[in-house]
Nucleic acid binder design. Structure first.
Lengths: 236, 236
DNA sequence: CGATGTCCTGATGTCAACATTAGGACATGG
DNA sequence: CCATGTCCTAATGTTGACATCAGGACATCG
């Protein structure tokens, strides 16, 4: 037993609610700009408003939704500015995570990276469900952050992780072929560099990997913004 | 009016509670390791447990306290490992913030930096209250992050800001003379580089500034950890 | 005497009712 | 027709009571 069993964490309704709502956002049920009303969610999920409220606060910490005083929390929009902000920060974090993991990663961590890359290949061979590929992509980077062994760094990553996830989903929607053609190669190279690469090269490639994602996503975004708001009820 | 009036935000009891508890932690009223019981705080602050709970969640987002399932939230300890984690992350964030601000900062942002440095000098000349100096130090870096104009980067900074504040308070407790001798010079150099420095040099100096703080703090930490727990009531 | 099971206590988790508020619909006056 | 003030409503903010749980004290058994 290498990791001492993940401590059978009992999690509480707030976490449960957060997971459900997050999944609903990723699935497109709540498009960007949609309002997340506490009473609605509470009825639908069969939990109290307090728990929903706490769950929404957690999603806000992840940057997936925004809230305000006496104002419904809403799903974030995907504007070019948002993309620039998130990926600029992600480049800095990924760079630190990669160089730290280069020193600190255990053999288990590294082989798990290989396994995830293999999973991507298998997924593509099996037809290539876009959402599953993105999940593997995110999981790959999760693993790098975990390998670095810096709890605060993991927290910082978690604060943009869901946004990156959402952005990547939109990216594959707009340009799936381009994504599919690159995802395995880029990640395999990162895995190799993490195992036995020069630290400078690793840092540079980690930043370029993010930059590649950023440009690919921006190319698929209409000039100004992708609002695509879908108000539940028309304005009569 | 340069910044369009700061929007008269009404904030709610949760924020109020968070501010009060944070201040109490900085003042030493709640030493590292102390348990923050919701009922106690609720009675003392004259607000409901729900509001206290939400305020504590905010402090947890800042990394100042830790919570768990059915376990009291407690003030973080200050171990060497914690310091390494926070300052490694801070170095990466400060580097990004500085280089971004080098391009994006307005004249107002830059002159506010000068004003803060002048405030430090004045404070030292006036005797030099340690807590006020640290507050100016933090405010200086707040301003750099603000000048960079990346909301996500600001959020990432806010997730370690209070920890840095706490660490710096401990640093001046352990080695005030060393801190006082360096604080003005280092910040003045950063301000100058932000106004008209080479980007590479700026990035390097920003990282070194953090590294200087890290080493100074670690030197004041006993070998293993600084626990210094002060249980409220004895164990009879 | 050590290991194990039971109970108790003090805390957090959850809930539903009440208070407050933002934002818009509407009426009014210029 | 536009500007302004008033009111209403649907949402969030806040609260106190109740349900549940973790951890330790204690008794019991081997």
């Amino acid at each position: 037993m290498s990791s001492a069993l993940p401590r059978a964490a009992r999690r509480g309704l707030a976490d449960e609610a957060a997971d459900l709502v997050r999944a609903a956002i990723f699935s497109g049920h709540f498009p960007p700009g949609a309002a997340l009303r506490e009473v609605e969610l509470a009825e639908h999920l069969q939990v109290s408003r307090g728990s929903v409220r706490e769950g929404l606060a957690r999603l806000e910490r992840e940057g997936l939704v925004r809230g305000g005083w006496h104002r419904s929390t809403t799903v974030i929009e995907v504007t070019a500015e948002d993309v620039q902000e998130v990926y600029a920060l992600r480049a800095a974090l990924d760079r630190l995570a990669a160089t730290t993991a280069r020193r600190a990663a255990s053999a288990e961590h590294l082989s798990e990276l290989d396994r995830l890359v293999a999973g991507m290949e298998a997924e593509i061979a099996a037809g290539g469900d876009a959402h599953r590929l993105v999940a593997l992509d995110i999981a790959f980077h999760d693993q790098i952050y975990r390998a670095a062994g810096n709890g605060r760094l993991v927290t910082a990553w978690e604060a943009i992780r869901s946004q990156v996830h959402l952005f990547q989903l939109r990216r594959v929607d707009a340009a799936y072929d381009h994504y599919r053609a690159r995802v395995v190669g880029e990640h395999r190279e990162l895995a190799a560099l993490l195992r036995s690469g020069d630290s400078r090269t690793l840092a540079r490639r980690a930043e370029e990997h993010v930059d590649s994602a950023r440009r690919s996503l921006l190319a698929g975004l209409p000039a100004r913004a992708v609002t695509e708001r879908a108000e539940a009820s028309g304005r009569r």
